[in-house]
Design a binder for these strands. Structure first.
Lengths: 360, 360
DNA sequence: CAGCCTTTCCAAAACGTTTCGGATGGACGA
DNA sequence: TCGTCCATCCGAAACGTTTTGGAAAGGCTG
């Protein structure tokens, strides 16, 4: 027996075994150039043999970094975690893993506020950075982190989003393009918008995109009928949808803010005998899995969540490396044409179309 | 200016401010008896004023504990996180927060195996203990943690579950009691069992409970029809359910392994014109929120997930305090009577009933 | 008043890592 | 031969906490 063998699995143990100093072992593993190639190899071999994994506390103490990125799971009571989040988390986790970081998720229980949990994470140094999602037009979490100067990336943005890093899909452009397509290519003039009551920023951008495009086209015959429903209160959607479908001035195309809403429109249309796409066009947003299996398949926008999540991980890296440099990314969703769209049922007799391309 | 003011928000800073030693400040905050009450108060006040939060890395380094409890989120690709998990996580998180611990969740991306992620967490000391869920009859995660001697609590159990801590609901007893009630109180003799193909332990226990009770009752007229379907492949359920419902020897009571399955039975029964509960009794298990809103309301077992999750947090505490003492808890689910059950449609003319209590 | 016990406090070590500022030895140029 | 430079290595400090093993001071007992 030696005097005292150092505890297994530490730099000290490897150093003792190899007759080197702790410094050299540390630097060899970190790949510094001031340690001989031969030595590096010896060290690497010994480390591998000993199943060496650096103690995170030791590293954290000296670097001040935990290697964790924090995420607040928006699970409330019995609420379901939607497919969007599931995929996003998976992508984010994978992206961070590539950087050697871990994703640290927490829920907020009913007894705490989201702000309390956030404060705890920041104060206790549980995470080096945060990822925020489901951003509202005004968001106290964003305000808190900005004020504290704590690194974070928002997936989505607040109304005033100049002074922090975010990544978002360009819903405004998407809905603007969408209207132009509906109008010019398919001849729709009676547009229905099914939106949510909650004041989320993405709602505003999408609505603005649609409304702005309608204004810009300058056609006085174009009408817009809008209904707002509570986002997660599925039970209350029916009334709004039926009132749109049963109105004597029924829209020929209904644009829904999310796929969930669009699918609900599809269901009610079926039960009311309104055929899609012959007499009604329905467009969604998100491209959730169910959108693929509906009948007819839902025409919608794909946010490529996985890739967005990966990019978020990249932004986190940037934010940590260069904290004072903010990064903002707007990604364009991809339009997915499935079966829920078609030309407007009653083509206007002799209108003043600008360009009239017929889809091949 | 002082020589060098210690960094804000550390024990050293508070000690310097108060003219005390670091030791005393540390012990005062920890509530040791060898520091005067007056001093304790001074320290507490100063700590509060400075918004002092102990640096977790420092604490971790010396105690060897991270304060994290790990949890592997079973999110796979686009798979939805079910309501069960959402509630469980929330409860677990709340229970751990009371102990000053944090719940550290990770997903496993498609490129890694669950075992790899688990190994990483254990090796890197990311968590002090683990919570495992969705336990299979044989489970490599359980084996791994047992072999490594790493503290964990399983929610559910493997077939051989003698040497680790777990908490589970007593599905065997529940299904056994269920049959007795169906048979003795409601007069059902043609039982259908809709189960899953996956070899989960909870499946086996529930099946065993039902089958055992049927054997025990000794009535040769009792028949059991069983169908196994893939748990998450909802599309494939219909065939199995219809074959049961359309069989000329249709069961008068169908017992489903989960509420999802039971609700699907309800739907198919409705579309086939089989009235529930008049000509068919349907029983579920889990009491998911949707079970409350179905038509008729689903009679099922409630696992009181929230409370189970809280208890899991308690078990974690025990496991960390007394690592060599294993804890095993079997909790009884609560039977929830709603509208999907009724007496057997054709009462047997003149049978040999043992006890015949009629429900009031 | 001496000895002992209590109360209250503290110095120093330890945890495992990274990194700064050398130290050592040999090769090479002058 | 001496000085310079490079390649390679290492000692020691630092991060912030907990804990061990006292130490100092005062009160009490005899």
């Amino acid at each position: 027996m030696e005097i005292t063998a150092p505890k297994k699995g530490t730099l000290k143990a490897i150093a003792a075994e190899l007759g080197l100093s702790i410094t050299t072992v540390s630097r060899a593993l970190a790949g510094y150039s001031d340690v001989a190639e031969a030595t590096k190899n010896r060290v690497r071999a010994a480390a591998a043999a000993a199943d060496y994994v650096p103690n995170s506390a030791g590293k954290m103490l000296v670097t001040g970094r935990s290697g964790f990125v924090g995420f607040l799971l928006p699970v409330r009571e019995t609420a379901i975690l939607d497919p969007f989040l599931g995929e996003y988390i998976t992508g984010l986790s994978a992206g961070l893993a590539e950087q050697g970081r871990d994703l640290f998720m927490t829920t907020v229980s009913s007894s705490q506020s989201e702000a309390t949990v956030l404060k705890h994470i920041v104060d206790a140094g549980r995470a080096d950075a945060m990822v925020l999602t489901r951003i509202a037009e005004e968001d106290e979490r964003v305000d808190f982190l900005v004020k504290r100067g704590f690194p974070f990336v928002a997936h989505g943005r607040t109304l005033d989003h100049s002074d922090y890093s975010w990544i978002d899909t360009d819903g405004k452009q998407a809905f603007s393009d969408l209207f132009q397509w509906l109008y010019q290519e398919l001849g729709h003039k009676k547009i229905g918008l099914l939106s949510i009551t909650e004041s989320m920023t993405f709602r505003r951008y999408r609505e603005d995109g649609l409304i702005g495009a309608i204004k810009d086209c300058g056609d006085p015959d174009v009408t817009l009928t809008t209904r707002h429903v509570p986002r997660f209160d599925t039970a209350s959607w029916g009334e709004a949808i039926r009132s749109m479908l049963e109105s004597e001035n029924r829209p020929s195309a209904i644009v829904a803010l999310t796929d969930e809403l669009a699918l609900s429109v599809l269901e009610h249309a079926a039960s009311l005998g309104v055929s899609v796409p012959e007499s009604l066009t329905v467009i969604g947003y998100d491209n959730i899995p169910a959108a693929h299996y509906s009948n007819p398949g839902l025409t919608t926008f794909d946010q490529s969540i996985r890739s967005t999540a990966q990019q978020t991980a990249g932004l986190i890296l940037d934010t940590l490396d260069t904290p004072d440099q903010i990064q903002q990314k707007l990604v364009s969703p991809i339009f997915i044409r499935r079966g829920s769209h078609g030309p407007a049922p009653k083509p206007v007799p002799n209108s003043l179309k600008t360009v009239s391309k017929t889809k091949g």
